[in-house]
Amino acid sequence: MQTYLADRYQAEFIILECDRILNSTAYIRRLRSVIKNRSFDSIIIEYVHSSYFLNCFPENVRMILDAHDIVSERARQFAAFNYQGVLYEMNEEDEYRLFQCYDHVMVLSSNDQTIVSGVLGPERTILSPHPVVTTPKKLRNAVSNITFIASSYLPNVDGISFFIENCWPAIRSKYDVTLNVIGTVCEKLQSPPEKNIMIKGFAANLNDVYADADIIINPVRFGAGLKIKNIEALGNGLPLVTTSHSASGLGKIPADIIKIADQPEEFVNAVVQLIDNYELRKSQGAAAYRFIRQNFSEEVCFSGLLHIIA
């Protein structure tokens, strides 16, 4: 969004602190120094736990919360897998009360749009997903690389660990393929139990990573919001196998675009079908790319927000 607004509207972006995390009092002090003697039509505050910034602006300014995830919903998801208290938590009542302090609340997924619309009404809810601007990758006839790309966020660590333990041995026993794990998620993983699992770490150029991938997996089982790695995989025209939880943020996605699997046997079977069938991989990848172009372009993703602030 930052690049999009800067290119089209000459928007200015000021970072209050680059090198360290401050407390709320210090952030407020710096913000007030930056905005002194300036007026604003609309203000976007990122994350509900940053709502203390509301005190810095007059009541006649349109205040928009960029919620990213619904924190209370994320907490429920984490608790279902016995990860209570790992991240910042907020109960539903307090979170919805803070939503009411804003003129609009912006969310990433259609599921969250439904929840927030129930609290504020649809006219105060903005759906603004993460856009993808990519070109489709050329698929190889034979599968060599199955790829997972993720940060060190706990659900990612849980998901790939679950896949390596419960799914990968069955796939590897049938095929000479490699599992490539990319991103800071690698920092949280133990040494691979097999030589055909490559824990590669951070990649500066994801375009090269996607160009080298034959199948993308996303075995994340819990969390919240839109799974950006899903839409990036689809936007690169690659076949994707993911969980029903992970796919839910995509909205009503046609069945021919992704393969959904939750249990280990389902995940193995879905990956095996793609390995065995080049035409299936090609058709799924092409349908995925068309879906992203139609639903996750910059123009589509930012239209609701730009309509509000124009």
Rank of each mutant, 00 (worst) to 15 (best):
A80W: 07
E59R: 09
V61W: 00
Q84N: 12
F81R: 08
N82A: 14
C56R: 02
L65P: 07
N60Q: 11
E73G: 06
Y88M: 08
Y52W: 10
L65H: 01
Q84I: 09
P58A: 02
F57K: 03
I70T: 08
F57H: 02
A79W: 10
A79E: 15
C56Y: 03
M63K: 14
V61A: 02
I64P: 06
V61I: 11
V86D: 13
A79I: 15
A80N: 13
N82E: 15
F57G: 08
N55G: 09
I70W: 02
N82K: 11
C56A: 15
L54P: 05
N55M: 11
P58E: 04
V86P: 07
F81T: 08
E89F: 14
Q77C: 06
F53A: 13
P58T: 13
A67I: 04
A80I: 11
L65F: 03
Y83A: 00
Y88L: 14
S51N: 14
V71P: 07
E89S: 09
L65V: 01
H68L: 07
Y88F: 15
E73Y: 12
E59W: 01
Q77P: 06
E73C: 07
F81M: 07
A75Y: 01
A80G: 00
Y52C: 05
I64Y: 02
I64V: 10
S51Y: 08
I70N: 05
Q84K: 15
E59Q: 08
H68P: 00
E59G: 03
F81C: 05
S72L: 04
Q84E: 12
G85L: 09
C56P: 03
A79N: 08
Y52F: 15
I70M: 00
S72T: 10
V71A: 06
Q77K: 14
D66E: 08
F53I: 11
Y88C: 06
F53L: 12
H68K: 04
R74L: 01
R62W: 01
V71D: 00
Q84F: 12
E59K: 15
L65M: 04
S51G: 13
A80Y: 09
E73T: 12
D69M: 01
L87I: 12
N60P: 03
E73P: 03
G85H: 14
L65N: 06
N60V: 03
M63G: 01
R76Q: 11
